[in-house]
Design a binder for these strands. Structure first.
Length: 374
DNA sequence: CCCTACCCTCTACG
DNA sequence: ACGTAGAGGGTAG
């Protein structure tokens, strides 16, 4: 395939606390971005986008196909003046209207745990992704990991999905595609979108029935391979519902560890699923899903080299010895250990914050080697 | 409501 | 080194 019309680098004024692409593009939201040398690269709305970032700006470059791709919904946009929409596309994709620093402040003011974790994970935004892409990607995410999902996302979607390594999810995708195409009204998926957060370039149809988050979530459950967690991923990342909180096993662990969930009830059923999401919506508000992503990212193994300890703890040392935390002896292993802990001032009326070195999170702070393809 | 099979890949461990 | 058990960002039946 021949590509032409490569633009010069352009830039948007965006600070790192408003957006950090190195974190946002690899924290399990989109599985198609690839870091090639110093640039993040992905196809989006019929063009190839390259991104890089410095402390003050997001830099972007566009590569257009030589001619329209037939059948592409964006093909008609490849008119000479259409290139100008790339800035608007980025603005929409990253929801740059939202003041993320203010949101972090707000979440920190109501949540000591967030205040502790967030400083080393600033600039984490939800991506405004295509709904269909999010649907298929997160069906693939069941019982899976980021590395493998990324491999799947790069494959073509055909009847031999199974041979391509999709496993049992191949049936889900085929079934879901059939249901959406034949059993649902045309444009059904888009009607589930948050009306306050329209899709990129979409026209608002005046007669469209307004949908709520709960309704959208419920509707998605009718698809094959879509349970509550996948439905919430699609709501949050593909349909613009900022209050959607996908509760996977990892978020469930966070809820138990840091938010006193599951002390009595050990079982995790649908009622508990809803309870966890409702709790975070109650705590964090309208953009609870965004706040959840910050804590989720903070617990990802891929980011385990970042300390949860504040900046003044500049010294880290490599120690080789048995480390015991809360009675759990971890295997002898080379690991990063903070040389000093920071005393966190207890907040009035709030449970005291654990000292960093005695948190259960130490077990996850193990340094991970790079995974995936070489 | 609870249990298990489902596909495949990577990792830890012997 | 090499093989194998186990887990990994759920869902359907």
């Amino acid at each position: 395939m021949v590509f032409k019309r490569i633009s010069e680098w352009r830039k948007l004024p965006v600070g790192l606390s408003e957006l950090c692409i190195d974190t946002t593009l690899r924290c399990g939201q989109s599985f198609r971005w690839q870091k090639i040398n110093d640039e993040w690269v992905c196809t989006l709305h019929g063009r190839i986008l390259s991104l890089k970032q410095d402390s003050t700006h997001l830099h972007y470059k566009v590569t257009w196909p030589e001619q329209s791709v037939k059948g592409s919904p964006t093909a008609q946009k490849l008119t000479p003046k259409a290139e100008d929409d790339t800035q608007a596309l980025l603005h929409h994709y990253f929801s740059l209207d939202l003041d993320l620093a203010s949101l972090y402040e707000q979440w920190s003011s109501v949540d000591p745990n967030f205040r502790k974790k967030a400083p080393t994970f600033t600039g984490v935004r939800m991506l405004n992704q295509d709904a269909w892409e999010a649907l298929i990607a997160f069906i693939c995410s069941s019982n899976n990991n980021i590395t493998r999902i990324s491999q799947m996302a790069r494959n073509g979607v055909e009847s031999n999905l199974r041979e391509l390594g999709f496993g049992y999810r191949a049936k889900y995708i085929a079934e879901t595609a059939r249901i959406v195409a034949k059993e649902k009204p045309s444009n059904w998926l888009e009607t589930l979108r948050n009306p306050d957060n329209p899709g990129f370039g979409s026209q608002l149809t005046p007669d469209a029935r307004v949908c709520t988050y709960k309704e959208a979530h419920e509707e998605l459950l009718a698809l094959k391979g879509v349970g509550p967690k996948v439905a919430d991923c699609v709501c949050l990342m593909g349909l613009g519902w900022g209050e959607s909180v996908p509760v996977d096993t990892h978020v469930w662990q966070i809820a138990q560890r840091d938010y006193k969930f599951g002390k009595k009830a050990k079982t995790f059923n649908k009622a508990m699923y809803d309870a966890v999401g409702d709790h975070f919506r109650d705590l964090w508000g309208k953009y609870a899903g965004w706040a959840h992503s910050v804590l989720f990212t903070a617990d990802l193994k891929a980011f385990s080299d970042r300390s949860v300890v504040k900046e003044e703890t500049h010294g880290v040392s490599i120690k080789e010895e048995l480390i015991e935390t809360n009675g759990i002896v971890l295997p002898k292993k080379r690991r990063l250990v903070e040389t000093k802990t920071v005393t966190v001032k207890p907040e009035p009326g709030v449970e005291e914050t654990k000292l960093p070195t005695e948190g259960e999170g130490d077990a996850k702070r193990r340094r991970t080697r790079s995974r995936g393809r070489a």
